[in-house]
Amino acid sequence: MTSLITLAAAGLAAEQKSAEVTNWSGRIGWLVGLALFVVLVYWLMRQGWKWRATLQSDLPELPESPSAPGEAKLRMSGRYHGSTTAGQWLDRIVAHGLGTRSRVELTLTDQGLDVVRPGADDFFVPRAQLVEARLDKGIAGKVLAEGGLLVVTWEHGGKRLDSGFRSDRAAEHAAWVEALNSMHHTKISSTEGTAR
């Protein structure tokens, strides 16, 4: 009987498996490898951003706001989503901080469009450089609902640029499109009148 109990106990012991030992060195190796991969991808993205800025270095410095910009026609608070080459919504312009997304305060005056960006470079678009405005749904990789983005086309350094803005109150966009486009048409009419 004792031998039977001994055999049963030996059988039970053979069936029991020991708890798996955690391979800490293997896990740490994987975590270090993953961290290095993430750092490499971030570094490559940063190098791409710098390379794009170098390619766009022919773009002149952005105009600053005049000391007396005139009376405000419209004001808007919202977000600046970036600038691209006009008509090419994925060709982001990064030179002079135009690729940096930020909060924005827009002011439209008789002299042009004043773009104030806390934490990023401010700039001013003179009236003569404003081309058009429209409602769109995307710019520089940012896609919103149809008509959720105010896109202003303007000229700078011999290039046409599209800059995307989103108001905190999207209902304001239509008034901005109308005001900016009427400024452009007034500018064309006055130029044609002086040419005759």
Rank of each mutant, 00 (worst) to 15 (best):
Ser3Ala: 10
Ser3Lys: 10
Leu4Gln: 07
Ala8Leu: 14
Gln16His: 05
Ser18Lys: 14
Ser18Gly: 11
Gly26His: 09
Ile28Gln: 14
Ile28Pro: 05
Trp30Glu: 07
Trp30Thr: 07
Leu31Val: 09
Val32Ser: 09
Leu34Thr: 14
Leu34Trp: 10
Leu34Asn: 11
Phe37Asp: 02
Phe37Val: 08
Val38Trp: 07
Val39Asn: 09
Leu40Lys: 08
Leu44Glu: 04
Gly48Leu: 05
Gly48Tyr: 04
Gly48Asp: 07
Leu55Ile: 00
Asp58Glu: 09
Asp58Leu: 03
Pro60Val: 07
Glu61Phe: 05
Pro63Gly: 10
Glu64Lys: 15
Pro66Ala: 06
Ser67Trp: 04
Ala72Pro: 06
Ala72Leu: 04
Lys73Ala: 09
Met76Lys: 10
Ser77Ile: 07
Gly78Ile: 11
Arg79Thr: 00
His81Gln: 01
Ser83Gly: 09
Thr84Pro: 09
Thr85Ser: 02
Thr85Gly: 01
Ala86Trp: 11
Asp91Ser: 15
Leu113Tyr: 11
Asp114Thr: 02
Val116His: 02
Pro118Thr: 12
Gly119Ser: 03
Asp121Gly: 05
Asp122Tyr: 00
Phe124Pro: 12
Pro126Cys: 07
Arg127Ser: 11
Ala128Gly: 05
Gln129Asp: 04
Ala133Leu: 05
Leu135Arg: 15
Asp136Ile: 06
Asp136Gly: 15
Gly138Ile: 00
Ala140Asp: 08
Lys142Leu: 07
Leu144Pro: 01
Glu146Asn: 12
Gly147Glu: 14
Leu150Tyr: 03
Val151Ile: 13
Val151His: 02
Val151Ala: 03
Thr153Met: 04
Trp154Glu: 11
Trp154Leu: 11
His156Gly: 15
Arg160Asp: 12
Arg160Trp: 13
Leu161Cys: 13
Gly164Glu: 08
Gly164Asp: 06
Phe165Pro: 05
Phe165Ser: 02
Ser167Tyr: 03
Asp168Ile: 04
Ala170Cys: 04
Ala171Arg: 14
Ala175Glu: 14
Ala175Val: 12
Glu178Met: 04
His184Gln: 06
His184Phe: 02
Ser189Asn: 06
Ser189Pro: 00
Ser190Arg: 15
Glu192His: 13
Gly193Val: 06
Gly193Ile: 04
